[in-house]
Design a protein around this nucleic acid. Structure first.
Length: 900
RNA sequence: GCCGGGAUGGCGGAAUUGGUAGACGCAGCGGACUCAAAAUCCGCCGCCGCGAGGUGUGGGGGUUCGAGUCCCCCUCCCGGCACCA
């Protein structure tokens, strides 16, 4: 009779034991290597979603594996608790955001606990707690003192839906990153952090992160966007009401100063002052400018968009030649980058070339391929020039031949021609000489341009960390003194959608000026929530030994013990913003002597999204109606191939739209709670690990979940069966089939250990299944001494599986008498003696094609194997009428007989 | 358009350095047990072919005794982006 797999009881009781014994409490221990494993903390939105389950299971598997390998593991958890959803919920339910947030935290914490994660809950924090955000405020004041934080009034991105300012990074294609609303421009004072001051370091230190995915580093480097060039001015005498515009200088930035002698026009952005002036007397131009401003900002459109422009009729003076250069308005020039104006060299720039051809602007070639440089491809196929220092020596480069007139535009580096005194100079020399000449005329110099902008952190929102500033009529903006921190956010406000409720809280606003003592007003702006998440990992790592986190210091010596995070796990969606801000914040804290690390996250794992089927149907009205997967049944043909799907309710077909991320609108979400309730935490965890490698997307599958559950049931039943036998030790000598079963177990373990170290958990789960198949077979064959092999194999299986399915493995570990606590067990290692074979099966190939196999002694030498293979009966027919040219022996693998 | 990453059975996915393609699971098919069903267990399962055999990792070429893996060209898919001067 089969014993039921009572997952509810065993999961509950195991979790209670862990709670009672404080099993996952982490204290520094110098005798062991530390392993700080961190998953990105969740926003307490109400309940966990599948992405959380996947994220935290990956972290937990890594934590538990390292713990059993002898590391001193810290795995904390907390809550990214400030933010807009709480305010939106408040508007809807008339509940204060604080209450909503704390309720959600309580529920989600219960869910996390029910998944059995090995978390040190004594280090739990929520960013909306004054004990935490006090230190946001404190560090902000330090930054203010050092000029890293400053106030300015600037045109900002205003999200009309959220009624707040957005950082440049939070504007995607002209729309708010959260709301998708079209962003408006508004002038508003706010506080900024000088992240651009760290741009070079943030770029350089990416090289210190070999444990980060390459693509994340590329994304960050692109975002920082360093470009080295020359900033210089064309001069002019263009006046508006007698007032010289921009002091008579049209500034431009170029990375190709070597082409300056080829300038045939300038192009300015639609918002440029020269454009504005010219438009005033030219309605046609005004209309064009309006069109440019409305132009699509969608990336895909823009890439294929026609380059358009219009002559302003204005001219400026070339700083080196003194020639008059016409000024055009171009739809491809952006006011927000560089100077909002460019010099145009059609001969050596793709866009300028296209533009000049279209409008008949002259094209003047001033660069030719240099010595050893070859024109690559034809016409428009421009591959980048070889890296600097390579002197352009391409493999197989033929001796230099003249390239009198390369196809234009020629955009690679070369040698100046047609450029007076610069003729013959290569790129570097020409840029140096030209920059020097411009500098001598006070009309320019070398400059580095960054795409990265300073980080605006002011938000006109209630549910965030108050900015600790007091506005005094006498003294201006006065920082709140340290001893008055934290500036506490009142927790009983209920936003009604009409702006920041703090503006109506007299008890919050009214205060006395710390400087002059007169009545003053508090700042009501709060900080961007990316501030909160920029250092939470360091706070987790501070000492909590006394009784919780210190209120005396932001971080302490223990922070430096645990940091940096050895493994950070989270979604790719944070590849730029959160990770860049955290890196910046760490560098600021380091510069202030608060911490001793350069980079907060040594290794980064970006887990893939969780997808599910999307089913839909066109409605009569032309809309699209979505159906949840459980309302739909797949239709197969006789081979099991899916041919369609139908709705259970009406038996009519529905459209299968492929796989997509789980979302409410597509109705394809699966609630983790239902999964846990029906199958248990171990099944949920196992399926998450089994279905795909961590970095790839994971496709939801109900039958996959059932398969995972079925496997754990088999583990349980096998454990139960073993427990009815009296324990036996592994015998000293094994017969052939038991030895081979044991070899299967140990070689599977060897592979699993390799896979664990490369974080490929799906094949570790497979290995566990394979191992169960092996021990079940041993049991079924029931040869003498089977029990010893089965017990050893099962003890390996339980330990190997325990990071993924910790409850069932702990329960069986104890039940079978292997030990009291599997957490204290050592990680299994394959025994080399179990892996050796006396006889090896070799594959025989003829001309690389599989033709047979044979068994040889382990000790057989090469020539013996060769002659055995050639003499093997099953391949004789392939050797008839041909002669054996040679025989290749790959040890332990195969023999290839080459004939011809 | 540019930069990354991909493409392997009906499906999810395996295959350390080039060495038996398809591990493990799902789905499917057949069988056992059952009055029956569920559950469970056993077997089959890339494609073509009765079979011998042929063929097969998006397509085409190449290197090699041997290519999913390396090189060249092409197609498609997914992510990211900056018309960045």
């Amino acid at each position: 009779m089969q014993q039921q797999y009572p997952f509810r009881e065993i999961e509950q009781s195991t979790q209670q034991q862990w709670d009672k014994s404080n099993a996952f409490r982490a204290e520094p221990d110098q005798s062991k290597p530390k392993y700080y494993c961190l998953s990105m903390f969740p926003y307490p939105s109400g309940k966990l979603h599948m992405g959380h389950v996947r994220n935290y299971t990956i972290g937990d598997v890594l934590s538990r594996y390292h713990r059993m390998k002898g590391f001193n593991v810290l795995q904390p958890m907390g809550w990214d608790a400030f933010g807009l959803p709480a305010e939106n919920a408040a508007i809807q339910n008339k509940v204060p955001p604080a209450q909503w947030t704390y309720d959600n935290i309580a529920y989600m914490k219960k869910q996390l606990k029910s998944l059995g994660f090995a978390i040190d809950w004594s280090r739990e924090l929520a960013t909306c707690q004054p004990e935490y955000y006090k230190w946001n405020q404190w560090l902000f004041l330090r930054m203010l003192e050092k000029g890293i934080a400053y106030k300015k009034t600037q045109v900002v991105n205003w999200d009309p839906v959220d009624q707040t300012v957005l950082a440049n990074e939070q504007v995607i294609d002209g729309r708010g990153w959260r709301t998708g609303a079209l962003v408006e421009k508004r002038e508003i004072p706010g506080y900024y952090l000088n992240i651009t001051g760290h741009a070079q370091q943030l770029l350089d230190d990416l090289d210190k992160l070999p444990g980060w995915p390459e693509r994340v580093k590329t994304m960050q480097a692109n975002w920082i966007g360093k470009s080295v060039g020359v900033r210089f001015a064309f001069t002019h005498d263009i006046r508006d009401n007698g007032q010289l515009i921009d002091d008579g200088k049209l500034w431009v930035f170029t990375t190709r100063a070597d082409t300056i002698m080829g300038v045939t026009f300038c192009a300015v952005a639609a918002e440029h002052p020269l454009a504005t002036l010219a438009a005033r007397s030219n309605p046609e131009l005004a209309a064009f400018i309006d069109k440019c401003k409305q132009g699509s900002v969608m990336e895909a459109d823009i890439a294929t968009m026609e380059k358009e422009g219009m002559d302003t009729g204005l001219t400026v003076t070339h700083p080196l030649t003194g020639e008059q250069v016409p000024v055009w308005v171009g739809n491809y020039v952006l006011m927000s980058y560089g100077e909002g104006a460019v010099m145009a060299v059609p001969a050596h720039d793709e866009r300028d070339f296209e533009f000049a051809k279209k409008y008949g602007v002259p094209i003047k070639a001033v660069i030719q391929p240099g010595e050893g440089e070859r024109e690559k491809g034809e016409g428009k196929n421009h591959t980048p020039s070889p890296p600097a220092g390579g002197e352009g020596r391409g493999e197989g480069a033929s001796p230099f031949t003249l390239h009198p007139s390369p196809a234009l535009p020629f955009v690679e580096h070369g040698v100046c021609v047609n450029s007076d005194k610069y003729d013959g100079l290569n790129y570097e020399a020409a840029v140096d000489a030209i920059a020097a000449d411009l500098k001598a005329k006070s009309l320019g110099d070398k400059q580095v341009n960054w795409r990265l902008r300073d980080w605006g952190i002011s938000r006109q929102r209630y549910w965030g960390c108050p900015i600790p500033i007091i506005h005094c009529d006498n003294c201006g903006d006065v920082p709140v003194p340290d001893d008055q921190l934290p500036v506490k956010l009142p927790e009983d406000c209920v936003p009604d959608g009409s702006g920041n409720p703090l503006n109506k809280r007299e008890d919050f606003i009214n205060c006395t000026c710390p400087k002059c003592g007169k009545p003053a007003k508090r700042e009501t702006d709060t900080m961007d929530t990316f501030v909160d998440s920029s250092w939470y990992y360091a706070r987790y790592a501070t000492s909590t030994a006394a009784s919780g986190f210190s209120d005396k210091a932001m971080v302490d010596a223990e922070t430096n013990h645990w940091m940096p995070v050895d493994q950070y796990i989270g979604g790719i969606e944070h590849a730029i913003l959160h990770l860049l801000y955290s890196r910046f914040w760490s560098k600021v804290m380091r510069d202030m002597g608060l911490v001793n690390y350069d980079e907060p996250f040594a290794n980064l794992l970006t887990q893939g999204m969780v997808l599910n089927h999307i089913f839909s149907r066109r409605t009569d009205k032309g809309g699209i109606e979505y159906f949840a997967p459980e309302e739909v049944e797949l239709v197969h043909d006789e081979h099991g191939k899916v041919t369609g799907a139908k709705l259970l309710a009406d038996n009519q077909p529905v459209d299968f739209q492929g796989m997509g991320t789980m979302s409410k609108s597509k109705r394809n979400g699966v609630d983790p709670q239902a999964l846990i309730d029906q199958y248990g935490a171990d099944t949920a965890r196992f399926f998450m690990m089994f279905a795909a490698p961590p970095e790839q997307t994971l496709e939801w599958s109900d039958s996959g979940v059932e398969g995972s559950h079925r496997f754990l049931k088999r583990v349980w039943n096998f454990g139960h069966a073993l427990s009815t036998e009296a324990p036996t030790e592994l015998p000293a000598k094994l017969n052939g089939s038991l030895a081979s079963a044991r070899r299967e177990i140990h070689s599977t373990l060897k592979q699993a250990n390799y896979d664990l170290d490369r974080q490929q958990f799906n094949t570790v789960a497979s290995a566990a299944m394979k191992m169960l198949n092996a021990v079940e077979k041993v049991q079924k064959d029931a040869e003498a001494d089977w029990l010893g092999v089965a017990r050893e194999g099962f003890s390996i299986l339980l330990r190997m599986l325990s990071p993924i399915a910790p409850h069932i493995t702990q329960t069986l570990w104890k039940k079978l008498g292997y030990g009291d606590d599997i957490l204290q067990a050592t990680w299994p290692q394959p025994e080399e003696s179990a892996l050796v074979q006396d006889e090896i099966e070799l594959v025989i190939q003829v001309n690389g094609k599989l033709r047979g196999s044979m068994t040889v002694a382990r000790t057989a030498d090469k020539s013996a194997i060769e002659s055995m293979a050639v003499a093997h009966p099953s391949i004789q027919k392939y050797l008839e009428g041909v002669s054996v040219r040679k025989v290749i022996v790959v040890p332990n693998k195969l023999v290839n007989i080459v004939v011809g």
